[in-house]
Design a protein around this nucleic acid. Sequence first.
DNA 1: ACCGTCCGTGCAGAATGGCTACATGGATCT
DNA 2: AGATCCATGTAGCCATTCTGCACGGACGGT
Lengths: 308, 308
Amino acid sequence: MDLRTLETLRAVRSQGGVTAAATVLHLTPSAVSQQLAGLAAEMGVPLTERVGRGLRLTPAGAALADAAVDVAVAVERARAACQGHRDSPVGTVRVSAFQSAAQLVFPRLLGAVAGWDGVTLECADEDVALADFPDLTDRFDVVVAHRPDGAADWPPGVRVVPLFREPLDVAVSPGHRLAGRGVIGPEELADEAWITVREGFPVAPVLAAVAARSGAAPRIAHRINDFTVATAMVAAGHGISLLPRHTTPAFPGVRLLRLTGVPAGRRVEALLRPDRAERRVVARVVGALTALAAEIDTVPAEPSDRSG
Amino acid sequence: MDLRTLETLRAVRSQGGVTAAATVLHLTPSAVSQQLAGLAAEMGVPLTERVGRGLRLTPAGAALADAAVDVAVAVERARAACQGHRDSPVGTVRVSAFQSAAQLVFPRLLGAVAGWDGVTLECADEDVALADFPDLTDRFDVVVAHRPDGAADWPPGVRVVPLFREPLDVAVSPGHRLAGRGVIGPEELADEAWITVREGFPVAPVLAAVAARSGAAPRIAHRINDFTVATAMVAAGHGISLLPRHTTPAFPGVRLLRLTGVPAGRRVEALLRPDRAERRVVARVVGALTALAAEIDTVPAEPSDRSG
DNA sequence: ACCGTCCGTGCAGAATGGCTACATGGATCT
DNA sequence: AGATCCATGTAGCCATTCTGCACGGACGGT
């Protein structure tokens, strides 16, 4: 019964397999398999069962994995209790964010942390499908994720810290027929050519909702995940797009029109594994994150072009 | 940060030193010292400080030791959660009891557990001073301890399961002037020669209280910790003694007289370390223990001789 | 139906880490 | 001041665990 073994069991469950777990743990599949076998032998209960060419946790294994979370939390709490008798928390925090938030948040966050002795920030941009965000917490201490209005809650077992809500505006080129408008309704957007994200990615359902109000299925011309690329395409007049108000990159000529009559927005949140959340450095970084998120939330974002 | 290391830290605190901790952990002092040094290095905070020729935990060390309890509890909870998906709990449970309770409890407990497959009971008689009972939980899963009426509570950090309260009767020989009486008061016991336990042992304060009511300091003729020996001496007329009603060994001719006007009794309780208490086998054994304690508590113990 | 591919598992060897035994430094008690 | 006890270093052994490779089973395409 080892802490590392428990962590391995958790990874196997969250990653869905031995090989995937081995990857995030920086181990070989063989080592993971041996740990599982040893743990099952110690418990006297089979923890995994083969299904197809993969495997799945038995109820006993799942129960143990659940309890392993509490163990990890207790361990980190212990570490924090000890660090509490130190001057200030130190360590390395790994933060991931999806592309557009990364652009907005990482520079400010690094700026805030720059003055903290002994605190190292490792940033990475990771943009994945909505369902895959929680799994990123295996590899990162803090995962900045986004979720469209009305989407289901994140699964249990992951701690969620709200950062800000970001309205989605309609981005059009300067030459577009609606370019002069500040506010528009969904019904005016029928038959437009849309540039949206790949299937399953966070803002996709919002466009579906907007289109539903316009009365027709949206005509999707392009699927572009990177908002910078999408913005450039909008600027060039190749379609319109739903883009987040604060994190849309500045691009000459692109105009953001406010949408009325339909709640169009996304929630930007930090996702943490419960044990990681107990680390004092992590808590401090999350604090800085929420502080700068509050600034973003109160930004007087007016419907205007971003050409500067 | 290892489970074993955390356990070592706890043992160092409860045992009050490296060598003592090493003893209960079945390790050498060197190993313990190395674990402590490694843990402190990992935490970046000194966990121990030298005091005299021994050492003591720093505030940080104490905090970590506190948190280590929660970790151990979480681990055992995890193990229990896993065992819950098994037919029945199995394992070895180490039980200690002070001499007189051992005599009463061990045979019945072993009888109750005899039918349980896979459950092994390791019994040991350990009679220590009142203050030393909690420390026994480092070496045993269940510690049957006793505590005189009015004594202070057990220190925090140890789980207490009440078993039964046992009145203390006055044991006299058949030839004693009070032998024919069933009930007596403290004032009738002045100038008696007492056989009592060693200083600091659980029932000593009760005799002091009884003697205080009799108006004079008790005349202590002998200090005998083993109730069997004390009973034999009482039977032979070498003095009278305060003996527990239920656990006094049967001995030809010894009469137990009920004491009135002063609360004379002791509480028999099971002491458990919180993490050990989480083990399902341990919980089951404690269940059997409380069950047979309930029987003992309702025994119609009449004042009579034990010559049977 | 077959074969390529993927996944989990077992078996060697190698490396890492922890423990024992012994020696040292320091503090207390007689 | 000497003896004793305690904690701490050091060298060496031993156990555990990881890697690398080979094997068996299962899915999916042809």
